[in-house]
Amino acid sequence: MPPYDSVRFGDPGSVFETFTHLGHLTAATENAVLGTGAAVLPLRGPLLVAKAAATVDVLSGGRMLLGLASGDRPVEYPLFGRDCETRVTAFREGRPAPLPHARGPAVTCGDAGCGKALAEEVGP
């Protein structure tokens, strides 16, 4: 997918990788709420999304707002080796992994298809 395809998608936000851009905005702002309109969970690992969101939340002093979606751009899925037709199932299967609040309890991924259960503290 081109980094910016205004004809098909109309959003310049697709120029940058979401969490990298939020890291930059964390350093460049002090009061703005930082968030994802909708991170496409089937194209990312649920625990990686959780870690990225928790990282932005901690570094920004609690300004992170996480939005998740199953995706609506079929052209993206082959680029990630994923099947667009199974995106809703992949979203539902990825969602059970608790997406931790940076100051929250331990994260487990036993229900997220990780194999064995994990428990790691997230945040400071």
Rank of each mutant, 00 (worst) to 15 (best):
L59R: 06
Y77I: 10
A119R: 15
A106I: 12
V75Y: 06
G94M: 04
L34A: 06
G62S: 06
T20C: 06
F19L: 13
K116L: 12
L66Q: 05
F80W: 11
K51H: 14
G115Y: 03
G10A: 01
L22P: 03
V40F: 09
H101K: 00
G37W: 10
A39G: 03
V15W: 09
D72P: 04
R87V: 03
Y77C: 07
A38I: 15
F80I: 04
L68F: 11
A50C: 07
S14R: 15
L43E: 13
G104H: 06
E120K: 07
L66D: 06
F16C: 04
G67K: 07
G61E: 06
E17A: 11
T36H: 08
V15L: 14
E93L: 02
V107T: 08
A39H: 04
V49S: 06
A39E: 11
G13N: 07
A50Q: 12
V58A: 14
T18G: 09
S70Q: 13
T89D: 04
G37D: 13
T55L: 05
R82F: 03
L41V: 14
P2R: 13
G115F: 05
A112T: 11
E85G: 06
L43K: 10
P78N: 06
H24R: 03
P3I: 02
T108I: 01
P105E: 12
G62W: 12
G81V: 14
S6F: 09
R87P: 01
T29N: 09
E17L: 06
P98W: 00
S6R: 03
F19C: 09
G104A: 15
R73F: 12
A27Y: 00
